[in-house]
Amino acid sequence: MSGNKRIMKEFADVQSNPPPGCKITLENEGDMNLWNVVMDAPSDSIYAGGHFKIAIKLPKEYPFKPPVLNFKTKLYHPNVTNDENGSMCLGMLRPDEWKPPNKIADVLKLVRTVLASPQPDDAVEQGIAEQYKNDRKAFEKTAKDWVGKYAK
């Protein structure tokens, strides 16, 4: 499997040169397809100070199929589903947008960008997106509350 080799290579790369604010480990030794990431929210974002656990599942067709991202830490964000999955499906993560040369490091960079600036027009949580657009104060308050509650 060329995919597996590539995953090894990518994993080695992110170990020696981790994407900003990310700590990457394997969920369990010997399974290269389940990555655990702890991401520190960008300091200039409303999530600043929060540490978010993200599970990345690399499908067996990876890199031909996009990885699946789940926030394990609850997060109040229009682009992350507000359920136990905490799924995110944005831009390059979409199956029809995904291109094999994209790497997990690129994906994590995208995640950080989206944390810093939510994309309400591409939201999975319409309610949060509406609030983000129309009542930014309330949105930020809840988001910060949640960071304090779940992401410390």
Partner: peptide, 13 residues
């Protein structure tokens, strides 16, 4: 082209 060496963006080799 054949004489060159390239990094494949997919397998990263």
């Amino acid at each position: 082209f054949n004489a060159g060496t390239y990094d494949c963006g997919i397998c990263l080799e």
